[in-house]
Simulated scan of single mutants.
Amino acid sequence: MREGDGERAVGQYPDGTAEEALAYFERKYTDLAGQVTLLEQRAKRGAPASDIAKAVASLRTSVAGANAVGDLASLAARLDTLGGTVEELTEQQSAEAKAQVEQAVAERTAIVVEAEALAAEDPARTQWKQTTSALDSLFTRWQTHQHDGPRIPKNEANELWKRFRTARSTIEHNRKAFFAELDNQHRDVRARKTALIEQAEALIPRGADGVPEYRQLLDQWKLAGRAGKRNDDALWARFKAAGDAIYSAKAEVDAKDNEEYSANLELKLALLDEAEPLLKATDRESARATLLSIQQRWDEIGRVPRDQVRPIEDRLRKVEAAVRRLDEEHWERNNPEKKARSEGLASQLTEAIAKLQQELDDAKASGDQRKVKEAQEALDARKVWLDALQ
Score class of each variant (00 low, 15 high):
G4W: 07
D5G: 11
E7D: 08
R8I: 07
A9T: 10
Q12G: 09
Y13T: 04
P14W: 13
D15K: 11
T17C: 09
E26A: 08
D31R: 12
R45N: 13
I52V: 07
A57S: 14
S58R: 13
V69T: 01
L72S: 03
S74V: 04
S74C: 03
R78P: 01
V86Q: 03
E91M: 06
Q92V: 04
Q92T: 14
S94Y: 01
A95F: 05
A95L: 08
Q100I: 01
E102S: 02
A104K: 02
E107L: 05
R108K: 12
E116R: 02
L118P: 01
D122S: 04
A124V: 00
R125A: 15
Q127C: 00
W128F: 02
W128D: 01
T131A: 15
S137K: 08
F139L: 15
T140M: 08
T144Q: 14
R151C: 08
R151A: 08
E156Q: 13
A157P: 06
S169C: 01
T170E: 14
I171L: 11
H173M: 14
F178R: 00
E181L: 11
H186F: 06
D188H: 04
Q199E: 15
D209I: 00
V211K: 10
L218N: 10
Q220P: 00
W221E: 00
L223I: 06
G225M: 07
A227H: 12
G228P: 01
G228V: 04
G228N: 01
K229H: 13
A237F: 06
K240D: 10
K240V: 00
A242V: 01
A249K: 08
E252R: 03
K256F: 05
E259C: 04
L265R: 04
L267P: 04
L269D: 15
L269W: 09
L278H: 07
R284P: 03
R288W: 06
S293T: 14
R297V: 13
D299N: 13
G302C: 07
R306K: 15
R310G: 10
D314W: 12
R315A: 06
L316S: 10
K318G: 11
V323G: 03
V323A: 05
H330I: 02
E332M: 12
E337W: 05
K339T: 14
A346N: 09
S347F: 11
L349T: 03
T350Y: 09
E351Y: 14
A352D: 08
L356C: 01
L356K: 15
A363T: 09
K371C: 01
E374D: 15
R382E: 13
V384C: 03
D387L: 10
D387C: 00
L389V: 04
Q390G: 12
